[in-house]
Write a protein that binds this DNA or RNA. Sequence first.
DNA 1: TTCACTTTTGAAATCATTGCAAAAATATAA
DNA 2: TTATATTTTTGCAATGATTTCAAAAGTGAA
Lengths: 139, 139
Amino acid sequence: MVSRAELKEELIKAGIRPSVQRLAIFEYVRRSCQHPTAEVVYEALRDELGSLSLTTVYNTLKLFVDAGLIMMLTIDDTFRCFDGNRSNHAHFRCNDCGKIIDLGMKKDFLSMVEGVEGLAVNEAQLYLKGLCGECKKKK
Amino acid sequence: MVSRAELKEELIKAGIRPSVQRLAIFEYVRRSCQHPTAEVVYEALRDELGSLSLTTVYNTLKLFVDAGLIMMLTIDDTFRCFDGNRSNHAHFRCNDCGKIIDLGMKKDFLSMVEGVEGLAVNEAQLYLKGLCGECKKKK
DNA sequence: TTCACTTTTGAAATCATTGCAAAAATATAA
DNA sequence: TTATATTTTTGCAATGATTTCAAAAGTGAA
């Protein structure tokens, strides 16, 4: 697991001062295997930090996204969630239980897209939707 | 171009009664080469129809999405827009001018994703973001 | 310590979307 | 046709995630 010191270093490298709140939020999102919303991050850290403002969580997550440290997912149109996993991966959302699953993705998947010449692509998100294994069985 | 009669037939086949509003909204989204929001559809059709409610536009677009007739895009996290193009395609959004561009996509792009076994995938959206040709030049 | 700058905070505002119940339109039955 | 049932549309109010804003707290430099 990535140490807190390494995460701190990473923030500094990105030109972000590692305040207590920022480091805690960064750590939480990076280590989470779920895909937390701002609200979830807030609920999880408010006690640990003694005090925390939801506004800070929103601002900080936006700061990280702009710096390219984490990703914002819009796979579910009713809420935004965040992903600290920086490997090349796709996302699957179950339409029944709402679960979001990470899926591996080959590096050259952009070769599947026609017409990218002339565009400067610097972010790619592949969203798959349907039924997960368990929900498929239930039906 | 698809005729109005064909569009009407398509609604009926999907089990949707082709009211005046529904047909107009369906026609608009299907024929648009842009990716209109509910608001844009509303502004475009309110005069043509004499009267129209924004609520109707929202309800109707949802109806079409649920029936699989059109797609809802969440590529821009600040608004939802709709796409009546039913070919297999990806979307690129320019971070500078906000333009959304359709890109062709090969049919077997799912072969690039690992771990889809066991999942029933029935929708896929590939979102690319970056700078379009014009905005790249400007910089 | 003082000063300038950055970060956090909470309350209020925003705004896209939805809920709801009445009105209008349309289909069905008699 | 007329009466009745069902579907669709409408406008307004409510919702709720996200942002704005200005004040308070924290931090680093001199």
